[in-house]
Design a protein around this nucleic acid. Structure first.
Lengths: 338, 338
DNA sequence: CTGAAAGCGCTTACAG
DNA sequence: CTGAAAGCGCTTACAG
């Protein structure tokens, strides 16, 4: 029905708004309001569809019960899965999520952080692009709760949840070595972000152990599928000795698969393949693809848990740095298991 | 840094909050406030980081500048793409998005609609599950702007944006017929929602034209990948005459591909394949898959456009029913083009 | 051109 | 056990 306010129900019972407020917020017992009255008021509200005005409430409490989520791109498989888990956690704790995609664009992200601050979110979860150190510091100065995700920022000491990119990549590349690969190529994004740097470091470390020669190809960020296919095909042709390929993201691997199909390369006979970031299709098409799987549900839980405790406990807590191990899911693209 | 309010700014200049409010909202000219003052005040605000309190503003205007988005599942490829486009449109128009996944669950959706109403969203975009007619009617009664998406609801006359499911499926199946298929199976979700009903109707219609025998298999909603693979394999074995398969969703097609790979069926030689809902992997793996592509960007634009005009123009407008044609993207799984 | 004042609908010391 | 009152920070007739 129309809007009915706390004052209306107060009038209906001939009592004050204060009492109504206490009842709505479940403080009847604490404030010594009789159970009978409480029941009656609650019943009346239900019947008349009373909804507390969210803005009024937030205005007086200063809490919005919403958290601002900034992912790189909501339509990306990995991020959309993460968001799905976060949503569930948020709802369970009575929070709403407002979100946006940063597009990995510093200027855009700065603007978005400003917007979210205006909106009065209670906390932030941020996948930070490069170059937003100043905004992050400003969040810290203003003691706004936030946690960084997927990558960390040089020079910033803040709560974050990231995968153990280095070790999980090192381990995967080492697995390729154990399976007999000697000339392992590495296809990555043209990015200096921590997650990409760490994955590459893992690759180089595993290669170093066998005194192997790095062969690295970089694909421009946001490059189109078709062009990426072309570029990877060229890379493979220029490095005919390659017997294995590690892809730093799942979309790169998909482009890479297409490139190899086009070249008539057989997987895993001619080329072993591992991709970072699992994807449902890696378990579907032929051959199935070995992948480094990020435990998305676990990451979401840590992210949310850290944020909530920051919101609840207030400032002054030392930052939590959460580094999560990945799992190597072995499939056909690396040949029969050792 | 801390909070600085309109009153602080007013005091700093020895003028009233009213004037400040006009300046902030760009009404200087209209209200005849001198450009000099306006500039000085704006400069001061920028320097001191003034942010209007969003709750106070919404409380007095009754507008929140946020729209509530309810999709079936944010992690689904199709919906995450849609959300990505909607986000861009919303931001461009100064709106924020709060979202949730309905999981196609009526009870959950009812609760979520209640939450969003409490939050005071200015409008809704809803992918409706079955059984929420009452809530939709209540939105209509309360004259809250909303538009339905992806499917419509029996008995509800409301704004909606849906794909032309029947015609696009009919056309795709007819294409299979033209390519020589005679025994065309149909794999769909166990759902009575309009989009599924219409797709099936399109299949039956195309089949009717050649007096073909329908062979339909239904997969339970939310069934696991592996079990779906098993079920589809069984379906194929029980219908050895099948020479083509139409999948009503892309995830079904992925499971179906795996099933066929497992059975050693060659595509398209032994079996032609078409899937509803394009997906990047359909253009990647071998063979590439012919698909009915939903023009997601176009759908998002229509959705948002209709919603905004409802928000702006107020109640009393007749509902807009927008039915969008799909595009058949022909690839290798249907053999060489006719 | 500008300001005093009321109002949006809550919460929460404070007083009894 | 309960209420009057102030306050949260805006907007917007209304008056001059």
């Amino acid at each position: 029905m129309g809007k009915i306010t706390a004052r209306d129900v107060a009038r209906a019972f001939g009592i004050s708004k204060t009492t109504i407020s206490f009842i709505v917020n479940g403080k009847s017992a604490e404030k010594g309001i009789s159970p009978v009255l409480t029941e009656k008021v609650l019943g009346y509200m239900k019947e008349h569809g009373y909804r507390p005005n969210h803005f009024a409430k937030s205005l007086s409490t200063g809490k919005s019960m919403t958290i601002g989520l900034m992912v790189e791109k909501i339509s990306d498989y990995f991020f959309s899965q993460l968001v799905y888990h976060l949503e569930e956690l948020a709802n369970r704790h009575g929070y709403q999520i407002i979100f946006c995609s940063t597009e990995n664009n510093g200027a855009r992200t700065r603007e978005l952080i400003r917007l979210f601050r205006n909106q009065g979110v209670d906390g932030f979860i941020i996948t930070p692009p490069e170059g937003i150190q100043a905004e992050i510091r400003s969040l810290q100065d203003d003691q706004l709760p936030f946690v960084l995700f997927d990558r960390y920022l040089p020079g910033i000491d803040a709560d974050h949840v990231v995968l153990d990119n280095l070790e999980s990549t090192r381990h995967a590349v080492q697995y390729l070595v154990e399976r007999g690969a000697r000339h392992i190529g590495y296809v990555e994004l043209d990015s200096e972000q921590s997650q990409m740097r760490d994955r590459k470091a893992g690759y180089l470390q595993a290669l170093g152990a066998i005194a192997g020669n790095p062969r690295i190809m970089r694909v421009p960020f946001n490059n189109g599928h078709d062009d990426t296919v072309t570029k990877i095909a060229a890379f493979i042709k220029h490095n005919p000795e390659l017997d294995a390929l590690f892809f730093a993201t799942n979309y790169l691997a998909m482009s890479g698969m297409k490139a190899m199909f086009g070249l008539g390369i057989r997987i895993p006979q001619d080329m072993a393949v591992v991709s970072f970031d699992d994807h449902i299709v890696f378990d579907t098409y032929l051959p199935t693809i070995t992948a480094v799987a990020q435990p998305i549900a676990v990451m979401a839980e840590n992210l949310f848990g850290i944020l909530i405790s920051k919101i609840k406990q207030g400032p002054g807590q030392p930052p939590t740095r959460c580094v999560i191990p990945a799992r190597l899911v072995i499939r056909d693209s690396t040949g029969p298991p050792v």
